[in-house]
Amino acid sequence: MLKDITLGQFFPGTSLAHRLDPRTKILLTVVYIVALFCAESFVSYGLMVALLITGVKVSGVAPKALVKGLKPVLFIICFTAILNLFYTPGEILVQFWVLKITKEGIFTAFFMALRISMLIMGTFLLTYTTSPISLTDGLEALLGPLKKVKVPVHELSMMMSIALRFIPTLIEETDKIMSAQKARGADFESGSLLDRAKALVPILVPLFISAFRRADELAVAMECRCYHGGQGRTKLHVLRYQPRDYVVMGAYAAVLAAVLVLARFGL
C-alpha cells in the first residue's frame, strides 16, 4: 500500500510541455510565481488563469489530477481566506459581534485563495511533466554559476538524484518491516497518538540501520565505478535549448510584462 505514494509525481508523456527543456520549465515556473504575486486585479488574474489553462491544455495533464494536488493544502487555503475575510479593514457589509465582513475583505480573501491554488497547480504542472532526473539536471545546470562562489551544486544534485533513486527502495523496505512487525502483533492503527508514535520506533530503528548499511555499500560501488566528484565529468544527456524553448519563454515574458504594466496602472 505504501508503494502507491509517489513523491514529485510524474506523468510520462510526449506533449510540448513534456518536451520543453527542464531549465525552461523551471524558469517559467519562477516567472509564473512572480507574476502571480504581482497580479492585483481581475484583468491580470484573468490573464494568469488563461495562462494556467493554456499550460494544462498543452501538457495534456488531467485537470482532475491538478485539483487533487490541492487537497492536502485545502486547510491552509481556507484558513488564509477566512482570516482575510474577517480582518481586512474597509467598507463594512455585514457585522455580528466582533466579526465584520468588508467588501475589501471579500476581494482579498477570494484573490488569496485563488493565488495559493494557482501557485500550487502551477508547480504541480512542472513536476507532472518533468521527470525527477531532468528536474535535477535542470536545477544543476541553472545553479551552475553558483559553483564559482563555492556552492557544491554538483554534490547537491547528486544527493537529490540518489534520494530519488532510493525512495522506492526504502518505501518497499518500510512495507516489509511493517508487515514483519504486524505479524509479531504490532498495532499501528489504534491507540492514542503517543501509542501510535511509540509503535513507529520498531519500524524506524531497523529502517535507519539498513539505510546506513545501504549508504555504505553504495558509496563503495560508486567508487568502484570511478566516481570522483563532479570534476571532469561528462553526461549522457546534455541539455540543449530548442527553438520551442525560446518561443514559449517569449510568450511567458509577454504575459509577465502585461501583468506588470497592468499593475502599474492599478488594474
Binding site: S131, I133, I162, T169, R214, L218, A221
Partner: peptide, 10 residues
C-alpha cells in the same frame, strides 16, 4: 545486493 549498487533511476 543488487539494490545497493544502482545509482540512477533509469
Amino acid at each position: 545486493n543488487p539494490d545497493n549498487q544502482i545509482v540512477a533511476n533509469v
